[in-house]
Each structure stands twice: as C-alpha cells, then as structure tokens.
Design a binder for these strands. Structure first.
Lengths: 127, 127
DNA sequence: CTAGTCCTTCCAGTAACTGGAAGGTCAAGG
DNA sequence: CCTTGACCTTCCAGTTACTGGAAGGACTAG
C-alpha cells in the first residue's frame, strides 16, 4: 500500500500520515526500492487508532502513550482509564469555561439593539 | 508610563504588550529619548479592551476590527452585534462538539473497570 | 561606581499540521 | 520510445498568539 492508499484507508490526509511518520508516531513499516513509503494493515490500524484518539482531543504525545498501551499485551486497564479520565476532566473544565463565556456573551448580544446607532452594550462592556 | 507600568495597569504580560505593539494592534503612543515605549491612559484602555475581547475568544484580527469600532464614533451597533453573534455561534458549535465528546468519553470511562487486567473498552473503541 | 532592575531588538520554540516548490517514479496511451 | 499525468520524495515556510531567552543599553539607589 502506498501512502495515498493508506491515508484513504485510515481516513487521514496524506500530509498528516507523512507527518506522523516524520515524528515517529506511526512509521511506514517499509520502503519501496524507489523510496516510497509502504504501509500494511497493521500500520493502517495504528493510523486509525491515532485518528480516533486525536478526535477525542488527546495530544500527539498522549496518543503516543495510548498507542504504546494499545500494543502492550501487559497493559492494565487502569493506566488507560487514568489517561482517559484526565482528558475527561480537561473537557469538563473547558465546558465550564465555554458555558460562562457563552452566558456572558449571549447576555450582551441580547441586550444590544443592533441598529444604526453607535450605542452598544457590547463595546461598553469591553471598553 | 513605561511598558511594565502599562502592562500592570492593563493586566497583561509585558511580552504581550510588546507583541501587540509589534503587530500594530496597540502601539505605544510615543518613545522616550532612550527608545523606551511610553504609554498613556488611552493606550492602556485599548490594551484592556483587547484583553477583554481576547477573553471572549475573539481572534487578534477580530480584536483589531472591534478596536476600530470602539474608536469609531460613527459605528453602528449592528456591526458589533454581528461580530459578537458570530463568536457566539462559534462558542455554541464548540459546546456541541465538546458535549458529544464528553458523553462518548464519559461512557467509555464508566465502562472501563480500571483494574490490573489488560481488557479495556476504551482501547477497544479506539482500535 | 556598581549592583540590580529596567528597557531594547532579535531569534527560536510552541502544537499539529498544511501548502508549496523542486525533482524523482511509474503506468498508460500513441 | 516518448510523453503526459498522477504519484511519490524531501525540505522550507506559514499558521495562532504568544513565550523564553540572549545580548546589550539605560536608569536608579546606595
């Protein structure tokens, strides 16, 4: 499988697959004579794993860790759970931030008449 | 006011104030003979305005636009409201994303026993 | 006079890609 | 055999909004 076939199979852009190879997150298992990266099913599965992990917002470094656990038969589920719980807390923290931001901004937007006059509670609040 | 006094008054790091000057978002109104940036109350008010705008998640470019409206006596509140509404929608979109991420991850975390065994629904889901 | 704290500019690094240039490779069609 | 077009390669630069640090000048207190 050349890189474009692998990228399609994994659901990732070619550039991203090459980038993951560069940073040694998921390397191509081999190269053709001409130097083309060659992927197999195992590598594609790792790429998919990373894509799904990234979708949860895990950083590349954490993905690296998760990928290690994925391939480690001696892992414990507590290690995985700890990482996922940490991410869950980050998400919850972000949700709280966004919620207060949302409420404040929504209130301002509601109170702004949005007409042709310069008076604006949003600008007043910021200034 | 030297840059450190201005940064304290504005509630921003010195580095950030200098950065805002570099990108011509909020420039120092003058320089001392030795080349030190000198700020006045008007400039500090602009810095505060930017700080508050940034806190809402407005990008630097949008802050530039808002700052223009802030100083424009002929602005219409509808322009401001349009920008703020757009940001509000972005926030809401982000909230929806985070919510589904949260629900999915929370479900996985709950279903993972977190013991010393390798079996893990989180890893299973990612792989 | 000197120590310490300010200020300056400039360069590099962050996260995770993405775009693009220059150039080599390969398969199909004429 | 040649060419065209779609691949592939590496390398460099840009994105966002700063942040850290080095080298060196300015200023103030003792």
């Amino acid at each position: 499988m050349n890189i474009s076939a692998a990228s399609k199979a994994a659901g990732l852009p070619v550039k991203t697959v090459r980038y993951y190879a560069d940073i040694k997150l998921v390397e191509a298992p081999s190269r053709s004579e001409a130097g083309y990266r060659t992927y197999d099913d195992v590598a594609v599965r790792k790429l998919v794993f990373v894509r799904r992990s990234r979708a949860f917002g895990f950083s590349i470094e954490v993905c690296r860790e998760l990928l290690g656990l994925y391939q480690d038969q001696d892992r414990t589920s507590s290690e995985v759970k700890r990482i996922a719980s940490k991410r869950l807390e980050e998400i919850e923290e972000k949700q709280r931030e966004l919620q207060s931001l949302h409420d404040e901004l929504a209130h301002l937007v509601t109170s702004c008449r949005g007409d042709h006059m310069p008076d604006c509670p949003i600008i007043d609040y910021l200034g």
